[in-house]
Design a protein around this nucleic acid. Structure first.
Lengths: 203, 203, 203, 203
DNA sequence: TATGAATGAGGGTTCATTCAT
DNA sequence: AATGAATGAACCCTCATTCAT
């Protein structure tokens, strides 16, 4: 009965936003952005369409918010790693962190990949992906590492490594939990970075 | 004056079907199946919506016809390669043929990949992909080859190779002609199959 | 090889028209006029849509031609019966002829009835039915007969008789060959006209 | 200012549903189900097409809801009458109630009859009519009554009575208010059940 | 005579978004 | 904060009809 404090309002607000984003991500990932209606999302969350529009001004806005969350991970990772002096060690960390993030956020990556494939399909997503130029930086890290390892063709090897990683993720996202993701992570580190042990930082 | 012969009708039909499939593939690949309307396809071809339905009974039917064309390539490749006695040589051929097909049919693979990512989004595509179980066979070819090469962990290496290939395709499909696809093909053959030369059968 | 004579052309023409009307009647009766497309009729006959339009200038024209055939029966019956001196005998003949026509042309009556129920649904049919005022005449015959039989309420009895006949037809058209149509014909003659025997004029 | 209560929403819903059903029934009855577009119904009600779909998930669903209302009458009548001990009295009541229902719901019966005539034309209606097997029960009531009245041929007489009733309805539905429906009801009761007086059970 | 390609209007349906309450 | 009624544009699809050949 007592009126809610502003803090309570904020808490409710944050929780609502989280619920909406979670439901939307799940549905976007499974059925595709275009095949997911606002109605379905609202029903999944258990709120009215109208209220959903109190938190996100459009379907695209909701998509942008979801993508933003994922970009934050990439930005944080770059930040964490930028100052490292050993390129090989840096690359190792990037790989481990990324594998773990994919394992923990499969839906996000499913959505991300499906959007990345058809940038023309969605203006907002297209613009955001162009802006969030993470991959470029990571690619340069990779070349650095192979150069330091005296690899004869660091560029090709970098392309290969990043292709292998993306391919592994693709397989994992399609096959799901039957895919030996953890094993492949260790196999990658071993084959590309000669890292023999390592518990993989598994979550 | 005299009525058209059946051959003339057939010619018109074939040409129209080809025009429609071409336009649809282009748009599906660029904008996504869900974002491509029949109207847009018809406009692209320069015909009325109604006429399109003389050739394809539904949007899904059109999609199926397009996918079928691609599956035919896979089936033909398997057929060609099945009887080969040397697994390594067989794998080499599969890789080369597939690289070439991807290079020549980028739109098809763009569409294919985008559909493969969200099988729940499209019933028809989902069913067709389940039925056309090519990847499984190709994976077994790969394991065979590495076993013959006495690789210590043929399964993991097979996973890695197929991931690398798919990743390369992903990059190529996203980046386009700037991507060094031909170079990566040679690099792959060299690194995974110890094939040193080879002009790659380039088309 | 020898060129066809005009008579042959006419014969072909008549046959085509008959085929088209037959197929159209069957489909109109079963699926309804609105649910039957020109394409379906042409396919059923085994000719092209274009050719069908050589014989009937529109779908409505085809419907009109079919209805006309049925009206011809009614007109002929009236003609045959008009001069009869005994109203009872005349009514008996009308009933027998009508039962027989319904039995032999169930599809026509199915179509006729479905159209008669919703005159607003089809302008052509509506106009034709209004013009072909057969029922009115037959009703008067019926009243005449009952008057001659000294029935205390000839009008009501006439309404009843014609309702019973129409109801029997309705049941027959809905139930089909399981319905005891012949038996009901005899029962009607017996109960309404005191006709005890009669082989029913069975065809 | 304050949001609408659930009761208010319910009231709006009920009213809209009633408006839609009323308009649809009127149009279906007059023009036929196939000739009545959702647009026309919406225009008749004065709402957008889209809103109509908030209340009925499809045109067929709307039809089903309308038919359901009519079936409810039949079920209630059967229920009311089932326990009656005197078959003749029971039949009398069924006849009176049905005449009254037809008189009060002419549009419904127009629609019903038009659908019953071409079961192949509409899957939903076909299935519902098959399931709602009222006529069969009523027919058995009728036979019972004639058997109790020692009629020499109860089955034929039952067929005749039900045909007469259906025929009367047919005439009434086609002719409209000029048809002496009330008079025919009394005439039927008198001729078939020897009921001489009766206020007609007027509703 | 004969074909079927071609059109265009209209039908059923969905959905992002707005708004009164 | 919260609801769901309401709209309108766009979507997939059908079909009577016309026309070049």
């Amino acid at each position: 009965m007592s009126p809610r404090t502003p803090e309570q309002f904020d808490a409710i607000r944050s929780q609502r936003i989280r619920q909406i984003k979670d439901a939307a991500l799940r549905l976007f990932a499974r059925d595709g952005y275009a095949n997911t209606s606002i109605s379905k999302i609202a029903r999944e969350v258990g709120m009215s369409k109208g209220l959903l529009y109190n938190y996100f001004s459009s379907k695209e806005d909701l998509l942008a918010a979801i993508l933003e969350d994922g970009f934050a991970f990439a930005a944080a990772l770059i930040e964490e790693v930028r100052a490292m002096s050993d390129p090989v060690e840096r690359l190792r960390l990037v790989i481990e962190r990324t594998f773990d993030h994919v394992a923990a956020n499969a839906d996000y990556w499913r959505l991300y990949t499906s959007l990345a494939f058809q940038p023309a399909a969605n203006e907002v997503a297209g613009r955001m992906m162009e802006a969030g130029g993470t991959p470029q930086i990571v690619f340069e890290f990779t070349v650095d590492a192979f150069r330091q390892m005296q690899h004869p063709d660091p560029e090709s090897e970098a392309w290969l490594l990043s292709a292998a990683i993306d391919g592994i993720f693709m397989h994992y996202l399609q096959i799901g939990e039957d895919y030996p993701l953890e094993k492949m992570k260790r196999y990658m580190l071993e084959r590309f970075l000669n890292v023999l042990d390592g518990d993989g930082g598994g979550g």
